[in-house]
């Protein structure tokens, strides 16, 4: 792997981690007043995918979308401001943490219903396919999406029409607190479900960012050469609670041992140590990179804090592309 690509992957992961850790540290201040799902521990798939995707490729995501939005190039201050509910937020305070959008970089939206953007991504691919070209659409999804009906329906249509969709599944083993054992029968892999639908399925270690990059790049190459939709499953783990800033290993739905084993497999530490050992980076690079990212994150939070809240009447605006005069009246 080229040095600049390795550095980009590490830098993107460190950046995501820095943003998420800062959110966690400051969540208790009570200024970020929305459900917030952190990506700490599962930064590698997002960083790898974003390094594969072109700026003109599109992406959609679900409730745990910070990493995907940031890696695709989404505006960081606008994301933090959105979580703060500010008028400068990427959704102008209407959506919060679970509704991120930055169409300038092809991040077309993340939504809060599990599986909800899967058909949206397929529809974007349909529009791209009608227009021609070899851009692809990446549908970021979690393991629970594989058990939703809309995934079966949307994946089937993507297969029928050979649409350029990359279904990128981060398998972090849990849907909130529900383990895979109550959601899939013993011995059935998510890849086998995808393959049964006709998706070309592959998978691997989602905490090994280089391996993840290789899998995603290969799938993207197959997509661009017209081989039909692809499914890539990456095994990873969320360190903190499903929703919120805390650790929740004490409440009993997963074991401390399991958590510690995954934390020892930290995707950032693994890659950082490998790059240091190979000489791709050195201590000075790391120090400068971390300092620059810390400053960027601090600036984003300062921007969010300093930004104004939306005007109260915005609660009743923006329902339609062109305001309906009588609608605006009847909602007051």
């Amino acid at each position: 792997m080229r040095a600049d690509l390795s550095q980009r992957l590490l830098r993107d992961m460190i950046r995501i981690r820095a943003v998420e850790e800062t959110i966690a540290a400051r969540y208790g201040e009570g200024k970020m007043r929305c459900p917030t799902h952190l990506s700490i521990g599962q930064e590698a798939p997002a960083a790898a995918a974003a390094a594969v995707l072109r700026p003109t490729d599109l992406a959609v995501s679900g409730h745990r979308a910070h990493a995907h939005y940031l890696a695709k190039g989404g505006d960081l201050p606008a994301m933090i401001a959105e979580i703060y509910g500010k008028a400068t937020g990427c959704a102008r305070g209407k959506g919060g943490s679970m509704h991120l959008i930055d169409e300038r970089v092809g991040f077309m939206g993340s939504t809060a219903i599990v599986g909800g953007t899967v058909p949206v991504g397929v529809g974007l691919a349909l529009a791209r396919a009608l227009a021609g070209g070899d851009d692809i659409v990446c549908v970021f999804m979690g393991d629970a999406v594989v058990e939703t009906g809309v995934f079966f329906e949307a994946a089937n249509f993507a297969v029928v029409r050979r649409l350029p969709v990359l279904f990128l599944c981060e398998n972090n083993l849990y849907s909130v607190y529900s383990p895979l054992s109550v959601r899939q029968p013993p011995g059935r892999s998510l890849q086998s479900v995808a393959a049964g639908l006709g998706l070309a399925a592959s998978g691997g270690d989602g905490n090994d960012v280089r391996a993840a990059y290789g899998l995603i790049a290969a799938a993207a190459d197959r997509l661009r050469s017209g081989n039909g939709p692809q499914f890539v499953e990456l095994a990873t783990y969320r360190w903190r609670e499903h929703c919120g800033p805390h650790y929740d290993n004490d409440i009993g739905y997963r074991s401390i041992e399991e958590f510690e084993a995954w934390r020892r497999d930290d995707p950032i530490v693994r890659f950082r140590e490998a790059l240091l050992a190979e000489g791709t980076i050195d201590g000075a690079w790391l120090e400068a990179t971390e300092a620059a990212l810390a400053a960027e994150v601090l600036a984003a939070f300062a921007f969010a804090e300093a930004s104004p809240f939306p005007e109260p009447e915005q609660a009743f605006r923006g329902l339609y592309a062109k305001p309906l005069g009588r609608e605006a009246v009847s909602c007051r």
């Binding site: 599109l58 959609v60 077309m108 939206g109 909800g116 953007t117 899967v118 058909p119 949206v120 991504g121 397929v122 529809g123 974007l124 691919a125 349909l126 529009a127 791209r128 009608l130 227009a131 009906g149 809309v150 079966f152 329906e153 949307a154 089937n156 249509f157 029928v160």
Partner: peptide
């Protein structure tokens, strides 16, 4: 057939695909 087509019996996804297609300019 690219613009006028039959579909799988998948009402929910086909609606979301319509949303995505609309976001994609159709």
């Amino acid at each position: 057939p690219a613009r006028v087509f039959d579909m799988p019996t998948s009402e929910n996804a086909m609606t979301g695909i319509g949303v995505g297609a609309a976001l994609g300019g159709l």
